[in-house]
């Protein structure tokens, strides 16, 4: 529907224009930002702590050092320690996330502008659908390659974030390029044959030819992570002419911080782009 609006807007507002402008914005106190996504890979899991900065500061986020972080699940406590990079904390031991278990984050002694914060959050992910394969189709106008998901069972209420990989190179390298879908939006979606990604052949990073291996990384994500990503995408692609009024991004952190603590499981499926697919023009 957004594209319809765009067409209408193009035709009606032939003279609408955009130009850079200078703004002076009010200053408000900074906040702690938590970015902690735990996965089902057996690794040293990572949690990042940073600080917000003035909107036009135009610098990399500054890490927040000195905090104490633990994650508790099933009476097990995993301790995180700060690495050499300020604000980057890794678990002392390797561990991986399992479905249907609640993971509890506790951060203490996070000090910002002389004030100490204690932060908490929880997250749980459901069992993933059994994703069997992906299939590819060329669009009629040969502008894109569509990727379809095929899953056997349908678990109510799952949320997915999809990232595309072409020949082992991540295509979706920013948060705004993740494709999100959830059953909450349009009732029960069948995941067998769902169009989940569109590789734009006009973009150099996404242009695919015969024999290219297209992979989709399906992140089966917790409700909290989904809410955060959904809100973050809306905020990052905010268009005042079409979007809802701006609002702060969802957070599941209590204690005055923003950001997200979430858990997810990962499935990667691949398919090869063949000449037959290209010739067929559509699936």
């Amino acid at each position: 529907m957004r594209r319809l609006y765009i067409i209408a807007t193009i035709l009606i507002l032939l003279q609408s224009c955009e130009e850079k402008t200078d703004l002076t914005l009010d200053t408000i106190p900074p906040k702690i930002v938590v970015n902690g996504i735990l996965t089902d890979e057996l690794i040293h899991q990572q949690i990042n702590l940073t600080k917000t900065s003035d909107y036009f500061s135009n610098t990399a986020p500054e890490g927040l050092s000195g905090a104490e972080i633990i994650v508790v699940y099933n009476s097990i406590t995993e301790t995180f320690s700060e690495t050499k990079t300020p604000g980057v904390y890794k678990s002392d031991k390797v561990f991986k996330v399992k479905p249907d278990i609640t993971y509890n984050l506790k951060i203490t002694n996070a000090v910002l502008e002389g004030k100490s914060y204690n932060l908490e959050a929880s997250s749980k992910v459901k069992e993933s659908d059994n994703i069997v394969k992906i299939s590819l189709a060329y669009s009629d106008k040969k502008e894109s390659v569509r990727v379809y998901m095929h899953a056997e069972n349908n678990i109510d209420g799952n949320n997915y974030a999809c990232k595309a990989i072409k020949n082992s190179i991540m295509v979706s390298d920013t948060l705004t390029e993740y494709i999100l879908f959830t059953e909450k939006d349009y009732g029960n979606i069948s995941y067998n044959g769902l169009w989940v990604y569109n590789l734009d052949l006009t973009k150099p990073t996404e242009a695919a030819t015969v024999s290219d291996v297209i992979s989709i990384e399906f992140l089966n994500i917790s409700n909290e992570y989904y809410e955060f990503l959904n809100a973050a995408q809306q905020a990052a692609s905010y268009n005042p002419m079409m979007s809802s009024p701006p609002a702060n991004i969802y957070t599941n952190l209590s204690g005055g911080a923003i950001g997200v603590f979430g858990v997810c499981t990962k499935t990667v499926k691949s398919a090869i782009l063949t000449q037959d697919i290209i010739d067929k023009g559509s699936r």
């Binding site: 914005l25 009010d26 200053t27 408000i28 900074p30 906040k31 930002v33 970015n35 940073t50 917000t52 900065s53 003035d54 909107y55 500061s57 990399a60 986020p61 390298d173 920013t174 948060l175 705004t176 973050a232 990052a236 923003i258 950001g259 997200v260």
Partner: peptide, 9 residues
Amino acid sequence: NQRLEIDNT
């Protein structure tokens, strides 16, 4: 008024 940065965004 402020900004945060996550996943290059």
